[in-house]
Amino acid sequence: APTVVALYDYTANRSDELTIHRGDIIRVFFKDNEDWWYGSIGKGQEGYFPANHVASE
Protein backbone atom coordinates (compact mmCIF):
# COMPACT_ATOMS: atom_id res chain seq x y z
CA ALA A 1 0.00 0.00 0.00
CA PRO A 2 1.23 3.54 -0.68
CA THR A 3 2.20 5.65 2.31
CA VAL A 4 1.69 9.29 3.22
CA VAL A 5 2.98 11.44 6.07
CA ALA A 6 0.69 13.42 8.38
CA LEU A 7 1.25 17.18 8.19
CA TYR A 8 -1.16 18.02 11.00
CA ASP A 9 -2.75 16.40 14.03
CA TYR A 10 -6.30 15.11 13.69
CA THR A 11 -8.40 13.66 16.50
CA ALA A 12 -11.01 11.12 15.45
CA ASN A 13 -14.60 12.25 15.97
CA ARG A 14 -16.17 8.87 15.21
CA SER A 15 -15.27 5.25 15.88
CA ASP A 16 -14.41 4.64 12.20
CA GLU A 17 -11.92 7.52 12.04
CA LEU A 18 -8.18 7.45 12.66
CA THR A 19 -6.43 9.79 15.09
CA ILE A 20 -3.20 10.99 13.47
CA HIS A 21 -0.29 13.08 14.68
CA ARG A 22 2.12 15.22 12.68
CA GLY A 23 4.90 13.02 11.32
CA ASP A 24 2.91 9.76 11.42
CA ILE A 25 3.42 7.47 8.45
CA ILE A 26 0.05 6.19 7.25
CA ARG A 27 -0.51 3.27 4.88
CA VAL A 28 -3.35 4.21 2.51
CA PHE A 29 -5.67 1.31 1.70
CA PHE A 30 -8.16 3.27 -0.36
CA LYS A 31 -9.17 6.81 -1.20
CA ASP A 32 -12.90 6.85 -0.46
CA ASN A 33 -13.23 10.31 -2.01
CA GLU A 34 -11.20 13.53 -2.36
CA ASP A 35 -11.70 14.45 1.28
CA TRP A 36 -11.51 11.20 3.25
CA TRP A 37 -9.02 8.36 2.83
CA TYR A 38 -8.82 5.06 4.69
CA GLY A 39 -5.58 3.74 6.09
CA SER A 40 -3.62 2.48 9.06
CA ILE A 41 -0.84 3.41 11.44
CA GLY A 42 1.09 0.51 12.87
CA LYS A 43 -0.92 -2.50 13.98
CA GLY A 44 -4.57 -2.33 14.82
CA GLN A 45 -5.14 1.39 14.30
CA GLU A 46 -7.07 1.99 11.12
CA GLY A 47 -9.83 4.25 9.90
CA TYR A 48 -10.74 7.29 7.86
CA PHE A 49 -8.64 10.43 8.00
CA PRO A 50 -8.84 13.82 6.22
CA ALA A 51 -6.82 13.74 3.00
CA ASN A 52 -5.89 17.43 3.37
CA HIS A 53 -3.93 16.58 6.53
CA VAL A 54 -1.37 14.39 4.72
CA ALA A 55 1.17 14.54 1.90
CA SER A 56 3.09 12.02 -0.17
CA GLU A 57 6.39 11.08 1.45
Rank of each mutant, 00 (worst) to 15 (best):
I20D: 01
T11V: 10
H21V: 09
F29D: 09
E57R: 13
V4R: 00
R14M: 09
L7G: 04
I26P: 06
S56W: 11
G47L: 01
H21A: 11
D32Y: 13
R27D: 14
P50G: 00
L18W: 03
E46K: 13
R14S: 12
Y38V: 01
Y8I: 09
E34H: 11
A12F: 04
G23F: 00
E57D: 10
E17W: 01
I41V: 14
T19N: 10
T3E: 08
T3G: 05
D9M: 01
W37A: 01
E34K: 13
D32K: 15
G23P: 02
S15I: 13
S15K: 14
G44K: 10
D32Q: 14
K43D: 12
L18R: 01
G42E: 13
A51E: 03
E46N: 04
A12I: 03
A55I: 08
Y8K: 13
N33H: 05
D24A: 05
R22A: 11
D24L: 05
Y48M: 03
N13Q: 14
N13E: 14
V54R: 01
D35G: 09
E34Q: 09
Y48S: 02
E34D: 12
Y48L: 08
D32N: 09
G42T: 07
F29Y: 06
D32P: 15
A6N: 03
V5I: 13
D16E: 15
V4A: 07
R22Q: 15
R27A: 10
K31V: 06
A51P: 03
D24C: 01
V5L: 07
A12Q: 04
V4Q: 04
D16Y: 10
N52W: 07
S40M: 10
I20Q: 02
R14C: 14
E46T: 09
A6E: 01
W36L: 04
V4G: 02
T11S: 07
E46G: 07
Y10R: 09
F30H: 12
Y10A: 02
S40F: 02
H21S: 12
N33K: 09
H21R: 14
I26H: 00
I41F: 03
P2K: 13
D9C: 06
A55Y: 11
A51V: 10
D35Y: 10
T11F: 09
E46V: 11
Y48A: 03
T3L: 08
E46D: 12
N52D: 11
Y38A: 04
V28L: 07
S15Y: 09
G42S: 10
K31F: 05
D16R: 09
F49I: 06
K31T: 09
D35Q: 11
I25C: 09
E17A: 04
H21N: 10
G47F: 07
Q45W: 05
A6K: 01
T19E: 04
A6S: 03
Y48C: 03
G42R: 14
A12T: 04
R22N: 07
A51S: 12
T19W: 02
